[in-house]
């Protein structure tokens, strides 16, 4: 197990390297001239002369690979350059906003787990009952609802009509409730369905029947065998949904005016603020790699059939 983890951690380095190269290259392939974007952000008219000066200043006149090498050298020491918009350190800016984003993502993840797994199991155990139909209806509504619209509905109902929760901004812990419900809705609905299907599959499997014939009590079968086995696809999907939740957090932060990376990243995209976009993507990659690693460790624990070497 430990060698498996070490191997995976070492693998992070080449992956980060490849991603950094792809991010840097693809951004340069786009139709936007970074020097022009820089001048527009600084409110300087992009004359020929100004462009020339800016190119030299930002090192854009150097050959492509030299540019990449310079950037990579900085990136290794967490220096991703200055934001075109704020003229502050891009990494410092993002790290300042990042904790809020991570917080609502993790809280939404907890909500997804608490809501989707028990309800999915309930639906599977009481298949075709009224409870099951309600679970199915909920998951159907959840996957078809635009999250930002759902957020507005929650604001209208709980903040404006009932006046029990704050509508926008950050005023303490209660400010997190509506954003988390908004963010968690779709992932809860999807995971509920996956849990239900997976649980059903294992309830009706032959190994479960065999245990029943052997006289193992129903609770032991459910708690020890069915639950553990049926969680394997659920864990995989939860891992994938962590990424979707971070993406959704961008929307939710803009909607609820929370101080996360959302608004900053959206304006950096509109303004072609390359250093920020690059830094954001690298930061995201690091987060996803770590989350994937955790998921894989849980996965191996749940399913010892997998050899550690085979899922690298």
């Amino acid at each position: 197990m430990i060698s498996f983890i070490i191997k995976r951690v070492l693998l992070i380095i080449p992956i980060m390297f490849v991603v950094s190269f792809l991010v840097f290259t693809i951004l340069r392939l786009g139709p936007v001239d970074p020097a022009q974007a820089y001048l527009l952000n600084s409110r300087i008219p992009p004359t020929e002369e100004a462009l020339k000066v800016t190119r030299a200043e930002l090192g854009l006149d150097k050959p492509f690979f030299t540019q990449y090498a310079i950037w990579l050298k900085g990136a290794v020491t967490l220096d991703f350059g200055l934001s075109y918009m704020t003229k502050r350190d891009a990494f410092g800016d993002l790290i300042y906003y990042f904790p809020t984003t991570l917080k609502i993502t993790f809280l939404a993840m907890i909500m997804v787990i608490i809501v989707s797994i028990p309800l999915g199991i309930l639906g599977a155990v009481k298949k075709d009952s009224i409870a099951d139909k309600i679970v199915k209806l909920f998951s159907f509504i959840g996957v078809s609802t635009p999250s930002f619209w759902f957020g507005f509905l929650l604001i209208y109902l709980f903040a404006l009509k009932l006046n029990i929760l704050p509508p926008f901004g950050f005023e303490g812990v209660s400010s997190y409730i509506l954003p988390i419900l908004t963010l968690g809705l779709m992932s809860s609905a999807i995971n509920m369905r996956i849990t239900r299907t997976s649980f059903l599959e294992h309830i009706t499997s032959r190994s479960t029947k065999y245990l029943k014939i052997q006289g193992v009590s129903n609770n032991t079968i459910m708690g020890k065998y069915v639950l553990k086995n049926s969680m394997i696809p659920v864990v995989t999907s939860l891992g994938m949904h962590f990424g979707e939740l971070i993406g959704g957090a961008v929307v939710v932060e803009v909607l609820f005016a929370l101080p996360g990376v959302g608004r900053y990243v959206v304006s950096s995209i509109i303004n072609h603020d390359y250093p920020v976009i690059q830094c954001f993507m690298i930061l995201m990659t690091a987060v996803f790699i770590i989350v994937n690693l955790i998921i894989d460790i849980i996965y191996v624990y749940l399913n010892p059939k997998i050899k550690y070497g085979s899922i690298i």
């Binding site: 992956i15 991010v23 693809i26 951004l27 392939l29 786009g30 139709p31 936007v32 994938m240 990424g243 979707e244 971070i246 993406g247 959704g248 961008v250 990243v265 959206v266 950096s268 995209i269 509109i270 072609h272 976009i277 993507m281 995201m284 990659t285 996803f288 790699i289 994937n292």
Partner: peptide
């Protein structure tokens, strides 16, 4: 490895709004 929404944000960053 990237979730679709983050990747979409990146491509819009490349191509423009």
């Amino acid at each position: 490895t990237f979730p679709t929404f983050i990747l979409a944000l990146f491509f819009i960053g490349v191509l423009g709004v």
